[in-house]
Simulated assay, not measured.
Amino acid sequence: MAGTATSLPRLSAQECEVWMRELSFAQSVADHDTAAFEQHVDERAAFASSRTEPQRGRAHIVRQWATLIAGTPVKLAWYPTRVTMGGRPDMAWSSGPALYEDTTPGAKERYHLGAFNSVWSRGEDGVWRVMFDDGIRPVPATLAQVDAFRAGRRDCTSLTSP
């Protein structure tokens, strides 16, 4: 799922900003930091965007994500492998793999891999926040796939176009 050396994107400086913001968003969950998570979500956001009943609004999304942010019973990790901007300098799309770890003692299928897609919007304050977020249903993962996921995380400095 993660990009390989031959498929890594070239990013503009603005795309790199979004890449780093996505990493910061994931770090808020890794750190179990609800306040930081909240600051990454647009006030008018919609998560689970493709579902019949998306999660709407920052406060509702934060409540719905409370157990994922707490990391119990499932730890969630993700990182971008793509960021793309079109003709608007205030909107960007990001995607990448997501790893779910069931922390329940004796869990039969401990790891699952999925993927995410997010749309970012830069506010009038210049801060990038997630406006839309969705993912694909995770499937059981082998330890080799988990290792590949963990080895695939990159920062964007080596991907930025000159």
Score class of each variant (00 low, 15 high):
residue 1 M to Q: 08
residue 2 A to Q: 14
residue 6 T to Q: 13
residue 7 S to E: 13
residue 7 S to V: 01
residue 8 L to A: 12
residue 10 R to S: 14
residue 17 E to W: 08
residue 18 V to W: 03
residue 19 W to S: 04
residue 24 S to K: 05
residue 29 V to E: 14
residue 31 D to F: 02
residue 31 D to C: 06
residue 33 D to P: 06
residue 35 A to F: 00
residue 36 A to R: 10
residue 37 F to T: 05
residue 41 V to T: 08
residue 42 D to T: 05
residue 43 E to P: 00
residue 43 E to Y: 00
residue 44 R to M: 08
residue 47 F to D: 02
residue 53 E to W: 04
residue 57 G to I: 07
residue 57 G to S: 06
residue 60 H to T: 15
residue 61 I to R: 03
residue 61 I to G: 03
residue 64 Q to R: 13
residue 65 W to V: 12
residue 65 W to H: 14
residue 67 T to P: 00
residue 71 G to Y: 01
residue 71 G to W: 00
residue 72 T to D: 11
residue 84 T to N: 02
residue 95 S to A: 14
residue 98 A to R: 02
residue 98 A to C: 09
residue 100 Y to Q: 12
residue 103 T to I: 13
residue 104 T to C: 01
residue 106 G to W: 09
residue 106 G to D: 11
residue 107 A to V: 14
residue 109 E to N: 13
residue 111 Y to I: 04
residue 116 F to A: 10
residue 119 V to G: 06
residue 121 S to A: 12
residue 122 R to L: 07
residue 125 D to N: 15
residue 125 D to M: 07
residue 128 W to S: 13
residue 129 R to Q: 06
residue 132 F to T: 08
residue 132 F to H: 14
residue 136 I to E: 07
residue 140 P to W: 15
residue 141 A to L: 07
residue 143 L to M: 11
residue 151 A to V: 04
residue 153 R to Q: 14
residue 155 D to G: 14
residue 157 T to V: 06
residue 157 T to Y: 06
residue 162 P to L: 06
